[in-house]
């Protein structure tokens, strides 16, 4: 499964980079989302994956005894997911606004900021 997940991560990165190399702003944002998900999975996988062992302390114990999934990557990813939502929203609105101002979503035509 690790090998499969590694391939998935690679695919997400590749897709993300391919998308941010496009000229369309919307694709750029989708590319960012793909990269974000790839990074999340990467962190998740590198913390080692384990089945059926959530990092919860059993009700009758005061600390964890058996093997458990690493809680640190999970805490990292949890905030990353929420923040990336904020980032996406901001990026989308920025695109929308930019589109309204310069009347194009072609990044190549947006670099002449001085003319606007």
């Amino acid at each position: 499964m690790e090998v499969l997940l590694a391939i998935v991560i690679g695919t997400l990165y590749a897709a993300g980079i391919f998308m941010i190399l496009r000229r369309s702003l919307v694709r750029l944002i989708i590319g960012l989302i793909l990269l974000g998900n790839g990074a999340n999975l990467l962190i998740f996988l590198l913390g080692r994956i384990a089945k059926g062992k959530p990092p919860l302390i059993p009700e009758d114990a005061n600390f964890m005894t058996a093997a458990y999934a690493d809680p640190i990557p999970q805490a990292l990813i949890l905030t990353a997911i929420v923040i990336s939502f904020g980032l996406q929203a901001f990026a989308i609105v920025l695109v929308k606004r930019a589109y309204r101002v310069v009347k194009t979503d072609d990044i190549d035509q947006m670099n002449a900021t001085d003319d606007v």
Binding site: I7, G10, T11, Y13, I17, L42
Partner: peptide, 10 residues
């Protein structure tokens, strides 16, 4: 470029 980078990451 994208596939190369993805492969490296994998």
């Amino acid at each position: 470029i994208a596939l190369g980078f993805g492969a490296l990451i994998s």
